[in-house]
């Protein structure tokens, strides 16, 4: 879902940088408000490495193939650290492997990072649904799993939707517009099984962390 250079018009790329700048400013502000902002950097760094490597893991979904994104997982576990983490991960992917692009860095960061922050808030809803008693009790575990699944699948789903809308509305006129639109639709639909997969994976990870080291989950 990384949009490469040369695909989007310049105005959209500039707008993407503007939205990413605003979201980065806001995320850093929220991070700064914590008593010890540096405490979460180790896990943010490790999850950035996971995000960076995830795009190499291709899952063939005929007739195309998709790759893991993990933005929902980053949002659920890292909270506001997820946006800078995704931005940094995308930067290295663009510079090293031309996966995505530098002119489209802003657009890609917004498309993948903002749904990660939404996934964080969805995951936090578990505290509204069940009061946080003993972290090992059954209802708490079930709701953690459920909201973990929603965060993981929703993060990817909203990203795919945003990318779909962006690509469909900006096809240049000198191309065969209908063919390009149809292939973008097909790729977006291929992400639906991936949504389920990432939802399950996110649920498993947060359940594991909840049981073993609950302080690692950002709340």
């Amino acid at each position: 879902m990384h949009i490469p250079d040369g695909i989007l018009p310049a105005a959209v790329s500039v707008a993407g940088y503007a939205t990413t700048g605003a979201a980065t400013w806001y995320s850093l502000r929220r991070i700064n408000r914590k008593e010890n902002p540096q405490e979460s950097i180790p896990r943010a760094s490790l999850l950035t490495a996971a995000f960076f490597v995830a795009s190499w893991i291709h899952i063939p979904i005929p007739p195309t193939s998709v790759h893991l994104v993990l933005n929902g997982l980053l949002g659920a576990v890292l909270g506001y650290y997820a946006f800078p983490a995704i931005l940094i991960g995308l930067f290295f992917q663009a510079v090293m492997f031309q996966h995505g692009g530098l002119t489209t860095l802003g657009v890609n960061a917004t498309v993948m990072g903002v749904p990660a922050l939404l996934a964080y808030h969805v995951f936090r809803l578990r505290n509204v649904v069940v009061r946080r008693g003993d972290p090992g009790d059954r209802p708490h575990q079930v709701w953690t799993g459920v909201f973990g699944f929603l965060a993981g699948s929703g993060g990817l789903g909203i990203s795919a939707l945003m990318a779909l809308i962006l690509l469909i509305t900006t096809v240049p006129a000198h191309l065969d517009v209908e063919v390009e639109r149809a292939s973008v639709y097909a790729l977006a639909v291929a992400h639906i099984p991936l949504m389920v997969l990432e939802g399950i994976f996110t649920a498993l990870v947060v359940l594991f962390l909840q049981r073993v080291r609950p302080e690692l989950l950002e709340d």
Binding site: M1, P4, I7, S183
Partner: peptide
């Protein structure tokens, strides 16, 4: 070359 939002030059 461009297809479904991916491409290269």
């Amino acid at each position: 070359v461009r297809q479904s939002g991916h491409g290269d030059m």
